[in-house]
Write a protein that binds this DNA or RNA. Structure first.
Length: 113
DNA sequence: CAATTGACGTAGT
DNA sequence: CACTACGCCAATT
């Protein structure tokens, strides 16, 4: 099982109206130091229609500046569409970041399903 | 197979 | 919070 497929699986189960950070994903998948890899995976796959990669932000809540198809603006637009308030180029992590344990639980459920 | 490449994170300033 | 420097590691070349 590649880390890549794990990351994509996790993206698919992010609760609507919530966001996650790269490091959070990495930690959940057992690679707490592989935050960069998570970003690389999303960068290389570029499948915005298949996975909600717009729900992924960095540790400060800032949106990815190299997001495909319009960059920050396009990503912010998608986030707002999900009911998430985007101030400038960032979101309020305190309010929108999905708890890691909840994600782990959802991931487990998706595997079981 | 070795080197390169980053949608990043953390600690220090 | 903004910036810098350095560490990290799977996928790609």
């Amino acid at each position: 099982m590649t880390l890549q497929s794990e990351v994509l699986s996790l993206l698919a189960i992010i609760p609507n109206g919530k966001v996650v950070t790269y490091g959070q994903i990495a930690k959940i998948l057992g690679r707490p130091k592989a935050s960069r890899v998570v970003g690389n995976i999303l960068h290389r796959n570029l499948e915005p229609d298949r996975f909600p990669c717009y729900k992924v932000v960095n540790a400060t809540g800032k949106l990815s500046s190299h997001y495909a198809y319009g960059g920050l603006t396009a990503q912010a637009k998608r986030l707002r569409h999900d009911g998430i308030i985007v101030q400038g180029d960032r979101v309020d992590l305190k309010r929108y970041q999905a708890p890691s344990d909840e994600l782990a639980n959802l991931l487990d459920s998706s595997i079981n399903k």
